[in-house]
Write a protein that binds this DNA or RNA. Sequence first.
DNA 1: AAACGAAACGATATAATATAACATCCGATG
DNA 2: CATCGGATGTTATATTATATCGTTTCGTTT
Lengths: 180, 180
Amino acid sequence: MVRRSTRKSSAAAAFPRRGHDHGRCVSDALSTAAALCARDGERLTPLRKRVLEFVWSSHQPIGAYAILDRLRTEHGRALGPPTVYRALDFLVERGLVHRLASLNAFVGCPQPGDAHIVQFLICRQCGMAAELDDARIAGALDRSAAMLGFRVEDQVIELSGICGQCLKESPGAGARADGE
Amino acid sequence: MVRRSTRKSSAAAAFPRRGHDHGRCVSDALSTAAALCARDGERLTPLRKRVLEFVWSSHQPIGAYAILDRLRTEHGRALGPPTVYRALDFLVERGLVHRLASLNAFVGCPQPGDAHIVQFLICRQCGMAAELDDARIAGALDRSAAMLGFRVEDQVIELSGICGQCLKESPGAGARADGE
DNA sequence: AAACGAAACGATATAATATAACATCCGATG
DNA sequence: CATCGGATGTTATATTATATCGTTTCGTTT
């Protein structure tokens, strides 16, 4: 069974709340990933699943080497970078994970299978990243570029700043950063 | 004397043409940089100026290590990465050069001194990058984020695709890529 | 079940990008 | 001249990512 979004084309996702039921985020992500892979005849191997779980361990983008460290801890012996990069490449190709170019880090996609525009909000205080999937903006960019004769194939849109909760909790200084 | 742009707030810059007078791009960039530094009491040292020239050697974003190699060639003896990164940091801080996160590379700013929104078009065929400074899009992103309570402080917007000239010259294959 | 081929994974080495830390130089100013 | 701060030089290292090749696993075919 394939998940299908019912969002309006210009709708925006919510920024994750602190204290939300994150276990639900993880289990949703895993079951959706399994369903999509099954649908497409791809294999969500134990390694890929484990990497996906690490990416989803919080809403804070995680670096490849952080994942690698965690894998090594579990696994006992050392693993090489290619092992984790291959798994990440697979997950990114399948749309299950996104790479943030401005952070060199990876974050889980909350709407995989849904061909969506990817625009990110990244809070520099708590470190969490959320998608802002605004199709109107993507369309406006495409049109704006087209006026210069340019055909857009890929958009990298990453907005950094302060999320609503951090603005409330710390009009200046340090909020907690558990990022769940 | 300070350059002031007369562009409308939502105007878009042109994608650089092959065969344009690139010497003019370079000399404009250098004289504007000198003027801005003089105005702000900053020093456009020989090294910084030389790095700026390398960045402007074409409209193709250039990596820090490519600049470093060219510096070494001129300089005779080896220079360390910090030397070039410091010069780049200075130029980026002064708005004379932009860093493209999706390429890990640097490109000259055609409108320094003008507080402008930075959005890039990057042609994957010829490698050239141009600015698309659309204030309406930046505003729409800010508002869209604000609806989620998010305050945007920095926008990374990098659109990759095919520029008009490459579309004309090669409806598929390889155009020249001199990037000037 | 055996054989095969493709995909996935492990392992080693290395490339590419970036920064930390400290020494030295150089120019302005007292 | 002394000295002080900014800029640069130098060495070492951190961080991110890929190339290459051998081995294992798994599905398919026979």
